[in-house]
Amino acid sequence: MLKYDEIINLRKQLMNDEIALETAKNLFWNDFKEGQRTWHTKDWKERRAKVIKDHCEICGSTETLTLQHLSHPKKYYEYEKKITNKYTKSYIDSTPIIQKKDFTKHVIQNYEYVPIPLCPNCKSRYPNQRMRKTPKYLCTACRNEFAEPVYKQVNELIDLFYENKELIEVHDKCFISKDKWKNQHNLLQAMYWLQRKHSKIKNADEIGKEAFMQFLEDTIKYLSFEDTITACKKCAYRYDIKNMELCPKCKTYYKGIQYPTCIQCLPDEKREAALEKIDFGKKMKEMHKNLGID
């Protein structure tokens, strides 16, 4: 695992094109072990000792102090996804629509088609399927009774897609991806993922470098202790796990980070309303538990 200064140098080299992206990735993740944490390293502990204060900056306690990060770097794939989305949007905005024959080939190769049943008389969608009566189907629009519905072919749907993307047929999620995810897509989504694929191929180097650079920047920020406060074990737990902090008004009770004060410090009317809401939530939870629906 690279040290803080080594990661800074790695980012600088990558930014100045002094090192290839794959080489930089290999260096960063070299010797990385599952479950390994940066705060277990000697480098972290030595730098932490220079930053941590002698008291909790939230409640003033001096017991079991830790450095609490106020922000954390995301997983690398999240950066890659975000940058890919950006390049895909740019690609779609600047590139003419994919040719119909190419799109048709893509759909047939990558999706299973599950057609929508139609009335053979009026082409209304989803006729009623009867269990006992014959003929088996009844169209609720034209009252036609029939034994078997009709279906649009893939080519027909794609023709409609290229004519008018607002048609209801275009929005039917009747295409199941053949990959392990088995995603349900409509033609608009199928087109998007094809364009995304083209964008990733075209901009692979740019996407990879930009995503890794952002990942390194946030990692460096995290390791620098820039966005940290000294907190006791209790306050750190409340902040990290419960998303709560000490009320700045009373300095006694904890509150949700998104709220200005704790419930106890609210004006009487608002405090009563908040407590009633909490009590109602507890009763509903208990009722759900008793009914076995929690």
Rank of each mutant, 00 (worst) to 15 (best):
M131T: 15
Y137F: 02
T140M: 09
C139T: 15
N128G: 09
K133Y: 12
N121E: 07
M213Y: 09
I201S: 12
K105Y: 06
W193D: 02
W181T: 14
F146W: 12
I108S: 11
V150M: 08
D205A: 15
G208D: 09
K209S: 02
L160C: 10
K152T: 06
I201N: 02
A147G: 06
G208R: 05
V170D: 00
I158E: 07
D205P: 00
T134G: 06
W193Q: 02
I158R: 02
Y137I: 01
G208S: 05
Q153I: 04
P149T: 14
L138H: 14
Q184V: 10
E210P: 03
K200W: 01
Q129A: 08
H171P: 02
D205M: 02
N183D: 01
E145Y: 11
I176C: 07
K165R: 15
P120V: 05
K178N: 09
K180A: 10
C122A: 10
Q184H: 13
I108M: 12
L160Q: 15
F161P: 12
K200D: 00
V150L: 06
Q189G: 04
F175A: 04
C119D: 03
N144F: 10
H106E: 09
N128C: 01
C142I: 00
A190T: 01
N155C: 07
N164A: 08
E145D: 10
C174D: 05
Y162K: 04
H198M: 14
L118T: 11
H198I: 09
E163Q: 15
Q189R: 06
C174E: 14
E163L: 12
K202D: 03
N144G: 04
T134N: 13
N186V: 08
K123W: 05
M191H: 03
E156V: 11
Q189K: 10
Y113I: 10
K200G: 00
S177N: 05
H198R: 12
F175E: 14
R130A: 10
I108W: 01
I108L: 11
P135N: 03
L194D: 06
D159P: 12
L160F: 13
K178S: 12
K165S: 08
L118D: 11
G208P: 05
I116H: 06
D172M: 13
E166K: 12
L187H: 07
E166P: 06
V170Q: 01
K165Q: 15
R132I: 15
Y113M: 00
L138R: 08
D159L: 05
V150S: 13
D172Y: 13
A141R: 13
H106Y: 15
R196Q: 01
I201C: 03
W193M: 12
A190M: 11
Q109A: 14
V170T: 06
W181Y: 14
H106T: 04
K200F: 00
A211V: 03
Q129H: 06
L188I: 01
F146P: 09
E166A: 14
F161Y: 15
K173W: 01
N186E: 09
K200E: 01
M131F: 12
N183P: 00
L138Y: 13
Y162H: 07
F161I: 04
E169F: 13
R132H: 04
V150K: 11
K105E: 02
P120Y: 07
N183K: 02
T134Q: 12
L167K: 14
L194T: 03
M131R: 13
M131V: 15
P115Q: 07
